[in-house]
């Protein structure tokens, strides 16, 4: 019985860790699951990926679609705290869009900057942006790279 309790406790702990490591997918009634990739240095792509997310929400409805934007490489600038699109990010966060920030990229940028970049409050760090995308695809998400 003790072993059963221990196993159950470890299972619950492991489950909670996985949920922290990967931002929660909290839209059980979503009919569409979409992951948007931003990894391009072109600032126009920042506006474009936000526009796409906004249009998806408008089309399907906030509760009928699950959208996550994964930023890595040069695209991580989208999630910098002072980004000129910060108000739009906050607004999309309020509509249920999730933002994942690649920890590998954060580490690389920290070396170049001499300090860690300050991220937008809506950004959730994930171990690796590309791994996060693969995981989401495995869970049935469709990848869109505007």
């Amino acid at each position: 019985m003790k072993r059963l309790y221990m196993f159950f406790a470890i299972f619950i702990y492991a489950l909670s860790i996985q949920q922290v490591a990967a931002a929660p997918e909290d839209k059980p009634f979503a009919e569409q699951k979409i992951v948007l990739q931003i990894s391009d240095p072109n600032p126009f792509k920042q506006t474009l990926v936000l526009n796409v997310a906004s249009n998806i929400i408008k089309h399907y409805g906030q509760d009928k679609v699950d959208v996550e934007i994964v930023a890595f490489g040069p695209g991580l600038r989208l999630l910098f705290k002072d980004n000129s699109n910060k108000d739009r990010i906050t607004s999309l966060d309020g509509s249920g869009v999730r933002f994942a920030a690649c920890k590998n990229t954060i580490a690389g940028m920290s070396k170049k900057l001499g300090h860690a970049p300050e991220l937008h409050g809506s950004a959730t760090p994930v171990t690796a942006g590309v791994v996060r995308i693969i995981d989401l695809i495995d869970k049935g998400y469709k990848l869109v790279k505007p």
Binding site: P41, T47, R77, L78, F80, S84
Partner: peptide
Amino acid sequence: ANAANWLMLQGTEPDSSAPR
């Protein structure tokens, strides 16, 4: 504020979204 005018349009770039 970050809104644009001639001083800002000509002298600054948008934060964290300007090209190289």
